[in-house]
């Protein structure tokens, strides 16, 4: 696709020595957002997957609202986690195939900062829409109304960690021809703490407990991931490209 190539060149050009780190990050953000806007199906697919998986559970378990309401927090969180996972494979794939990733590695700016920009776009395109859509699906699962806000908040906060941790797995497997299953094997165990505290927040909101502690821990996990994951992602990308 010539259009995306020229776009990527235009995006990378200001990265040349004249620009600082801020310019480079802004350029990465702008480029990835433009690319995402051109491939709308990549944004829609995780959302459709999320909705579809949630539809399966009442069919597979039982349509009784009382039963569904008790398992809804976990179901919504697990489905959102899987939807994020599904979108991760494409995170570096296209850039790897058309060579943009090598350009990113050669940029004079630190790679961790640039990949942080890419992960940020990934969160904007999957984590945030999933968080906004979740209350709608919570409605289908008879989730008590007082937990909708917490559900959205916890998903929005938790999916930042999911994107960051998942990006490590995506960077490690981008060079492999069939990395999909391997990616989920690598990423899912690492996501368990986020899942535990995310569902914990929603359950606390349902029974009327304070949700602050859960959200605070989710925030702490998010901060830790923000601090460390970019370096792991950068190192993994270098391995995948040079290896």
């Amino acid at each position: 696709m010539p259009s995306s190539d020229t776009e990527s060149l235009r995006g990378v050009e200001p990265v040349e020595p004249s620009g600082g780190l801020g310019v480079a990050m802004a350029a990465t953000l702008k480029r990835d957002l433009t690319l995402a806007a051109r491939r709308r199906s990549d944004i829609m697919n995780p959302l459709a997957f999320f909705a579809l998986v949630i539809t399966l559970f009442p069919l597979g378990i039982s349509p009784q609202p009382a039963l569904l309401a008790t398992i809804a927090p976990g179901l919504l969180w697990v489905a959102a986690l899987l939807a994020t996972l599904l979108s991760l494979e494409a995170l570096f794939r296209a850039d790897y195939e058309d060579g943009c990733l090598e350009q990113l590695l050669l940029a004079p700016q630190p790679l961790p900062a640039l990949v942080l920009g890419k992960v940020c776009v990934h969160w904007l395109m999957t984590g945030l829409p999933l968080a906004l859509m979740a209350p709608l699906l919570g409605l289908l699962l008879a989730l008590p109304a007082e937990s909708y806000l917490v559900l959205s908040l916890s998903l929005a906060l938790g999916s930042v960690s999911l994107s960051l941790i998942g990006a490590i797995g995506a960077a490690l497997t981008v060079g492999l021809s069939r990395g999909g299953v391997l990616l989920s094997l690598l990423v899912l165990p690492l996501n368990i703490p986020v899942l535990i505290f995310g569902t914990g927040a929603v359950q606390a909101a349902i029974i009327g407990d304070p949700v602050g502690p859960h959200l605070a821990i989710l925030g702490a996990l998010c901060c830790a991931a923000l601090m460390m994951a970019p370096f792991a992602i950068a190192a993994s990308l270098r391995i995948s490209i040079n290896g």
Binding site: L186, L190, I192, P193, A235, G243
Partner: peptide
Amino acid sequence: DSGARAASVLSMVGVINIPVIKYSVDWW
């Protein structure tokens, strides 16, 4: 060599996560 370095990165990421996983599972 690539496999070795990739596995190294993953084991380091994993070992940072193990205490987090352990405490969150205990809490859960």
